[in-house]
Write a protein that binds this DNA or RNA. Sequence first.
DNA 1: CTAGCCGATGTAAGTGATTACATCTTTCGG
DNA 2: CCGAAAGATGTAATCACTTACATCGGCTAG
Lengths: 349, 349
Amino acid sequence: MNIKAVAKLAGVSTATVSRTINGTAKISPKTEERVRRAIKSLNFYPDTNARALGSGRSSLYGLIISDITNPFYPELIKAFEDIAIAHNQEILVANTNYDPDRMKICVTRMLQRKVDGVAIMTSEMDEALIKDFSRRNIPLAFLDAGTPGPGVSSVHINYAAGIEAAMRHLIGLGHQRIAFIAGPLRLASARARFRTFKKIQAREHLAIHPGLIEVGNHRVDGGRDAMLRILDSATGSDAMPTAVLCSNDLTAIGAMGAIHERKLAIPRDISVMGFDNIQLSAYTMPSLSTVSVPRAELAKAAFRALLHAQERGLAKLPEGQKYSVDTTLVLRNSTGPVREPKTSAARKK
Amino acid sequence: MNIKAVAKLAGVSTATVSRTINGTAKISPKTEERVRRAIKSLNFYPDTNARALGSGRSSLYGLIISDITNPFYPELIKAFEDIAIAHNQEILVANTNYDPDRMKICVTRMLQRKVDGVAIMTSEMDEALIKDFSRRNIPLAFLDAGTPGPGVSSVHINYAAGIEAAMRHLIGLGHQRIAFIAGPLRLASARARFRTFKKIQAREHLAIHPGLIEVGNHRVDGGRDAMLRILDSATGSDAMPTAVLCSNDLTAIGAMGAIHERKLAIPRDISVMGFDNIQLSAYTMPSLSTVSVPRAELAKAAFRALLHAQERGLAKLPEGQKYSVDTTLVLRNSTGPVREPKTSAARKK
DNA sequence: CTAGCCGATGTAAGTGATTACATCTTTCGG
DNA sequence: CCGAAAGATGTAATCACTTACATCGGCTAG
């Protein structure tokens, strides 16, 4: 069942069938009707492989992420897929599993399928692999990393504003001893959040003490361990924090667990804030106040960037652009006003 | 950059290049070496589209699911992808978003890409669309649904055993008034769990009362609402349940939220059990006892089924097979022994 | 009346692989 | 020493489309 069968049944040439399907040329209404009828009666679908081969365009966009089981990503994927489908395109998702070798496989896959563009949101990225894309004139959109270049756009997430909003919220509630659990510091995104925290900590003259800062791994276990270290390091002279800001929601969930383990109440004894606003954060106990990183906006910006790179001069990719998305504060029940100092001072270990 | 360029550089024919790449014929070591060197120096990747067109095989397996943001799926996808990559295949994931129209788009996509097989795990399935696959000789693997037929395999999840194990655990802890929050009853999988619950309830002479059974929607909000109804319907004559079994983990998370809202303690006042063992269930407070539905096993069985359907006689698809995967009990901290009746009887609203 | 244009459609040459079949060497038993 | 089988490689058809170019029949303007 191919385009020839349709052409024969409709009594036209294959070119005419192709044109009616793609709308690439004017077809008389009568002919179009006959062709459509033939397609329907044969239940014909054009072969995407042949189509891509013939035209050079695949109508496929790649999306490379680190790990689909990280709850940050599914919404991103979904948003990206929805936009793609609305544009009559498809997407190819690949997980790197944080593994450089696997990353290489992913890139090769994309290259082999002649994708029209690739959006990348991973922690690691190999410069050499990026070259492979630009050498083949494939536009790239980096989410939360990279700098624009020819054919390479980048979508920047305004972490600084997000952390600042979170801090303002906590400070507004009266918190002065605010702890921070950072993400893995090899990640630029984790460093950005950490940096802003320290800046505001200094600017607002908040309590500064090494025991208030720990590094996690952006996962639940790391958050729990880090929080336990923070709680256990709190001695008389170096009292307990009244709030903790976490580099992401999973970390915050771990921290909440640790706080419960130590029989402290949230937010009465300690307020907890996350970052990302993963779905789950609405369903923790108590529900988690956090900073929303808008996945749908990210996907939209990435898609727009890729689309833009295509439309222009076909000879050479246009210079990539810089997009930016903003976070928003999501206040739930894990944050509350600081307790009076006298009552909280009594607590130890 | 195509196979011709490689052939020229290596001083051989394109056929020889193709053969070395695919290992489909004996190539002399000297020639092979030359070809490999040429491939490397040109940084050549064969075009998947052309390959699929020429060979008729796409090395692509489809995976159709309802909704990637449902935390049950990411692990399934990951496992499926890992297996595929280990077999040098790729996967194409499509979300139906619970929408029949979207399902149609997904199926068409798969058809157009000439996938070598499709694994399907969705709540809805249109019979007519399935026909499209078998008419085109594309093997299918249904996860948790359907009956085997020519080219159609099914992987069955042993829900009954899972529910039975959960109930045994609760009964072993002394629970007699066990509530159940079902999933949407249009889902066969939800019905299966519910049916088993009722069977065991009767068999073990447990308390039976309409107020103990509510229907949710397999989401957190439905679980919360259902649990509130259960708690509020508990009056003197019809005392509170001492345990609640939920049709899935999200429901259980909602139920836990409702129980907390009513200032009851888990598991002291009420034990809670979930079903599925989504990642998150380990990180609720308290951590959730549940029944693990092994996503990796599901993916493995589906992949094996699809692979099996291909290897055989190429003329006609072999009769599909029936696979089965078993659940396992995962005990955490949301379940505990029932309290002495006298103390719990005093509580009301 | 006719040159020129335009709209609709056909012809056929790509697109980059795979693979059946052909060809050319070796090798080896008889 | 010959013929056949086996091994290595080349030739070219094929896959299902797209699309540049050709064609053809009005239609219009000069």
